[in-house]
Design a protein around this nucleic acid. Sequence first.
DNA 1: TGATTATTTCAATATTAGTTGAAATAATGA
DNA 2: TCATTATTTCAACTAATATTGAAATAATCA
Lengths: 119, 119
Amino acid sequence: MNETQAVTALSALAHRHRLQIFRLLVVAGPTGVPAGEIAEAIGINPTALTFHLKELANADLATATREGRYVRYALHVDGMRRVIRYLTEDCCQGRKELCGLPTMRGRETCKPRAARERA
Amino acid sequence: MNETQAVTALSALAHRHRLQIFRLLVVAGPTGVPAGEIAEAIGINPTALTFHLKELANADLATATREGRYVRYALHVDGMRRVIRYLTEDCCQGRKELCGLPTMRGRETCKPRAARERA
DNA sequence: TGATTATTTCAATATTAGTTGAAATAATGA
DNA sequence: TCATTATTTCAACTAATATTGAAATAATCA
């Protein structure tokens, strides 16, 4: 993940409705949710919904799959993980006790990148 | 953390220079970095720097402490952790294998909130 | 095929966020 | 106190984002 991609992802999340949509997709998991159901849950009109879903998809945080006349949107898990990693990378120079950050798949998020890459 | 706070934090991060500043503070850890040093590292003018630092501080992602004529900015670790938690809460309905999310201080980020709170 | 439902596109408008330079405030040291 | 360095404030300007309604496209079903 590079800086531009990270800014795109964070911008996508930095909006009330898109954040609501994102969290809905996070909870829903890989099965996803049809657009119409999202619209109803969030309470916005179809034009706005399409606009916001596109922002999320463009930011690699969601995927779209057509199913007949519905389009089902799902969380793009890797996209989500990449942003978080980008934010927390190299934190506190690896002194985990200073930031209490989580571990990511067994590797310390908080370990300096160089050390992680040697491992 | 509520929705508004999360949007504020994500908006603060959703800018090239602020993201650079944030990551600088993440690496620096609790010691922080004087404003002037940040300006030099990022390469922006003092007015812009103040503007962006204020956004980060206002979003609870950074703190400012005056030290003589310098002002030292540091990462606000709890703020950072709260946004990440807000984003990943209740993911995949607790089926961690679906999202490969990190654990947060021993508690599964990916476990449903209700289950976490019972624990 | 024609009616219906779901989603997307387009263009106009409205809103919010970012940049700039000049001037103000804060602290230090000669 | 006066000169110097550090940071912040202010106001004008510029640029990027979001919202809206009407119309188009996609797919299903009678």
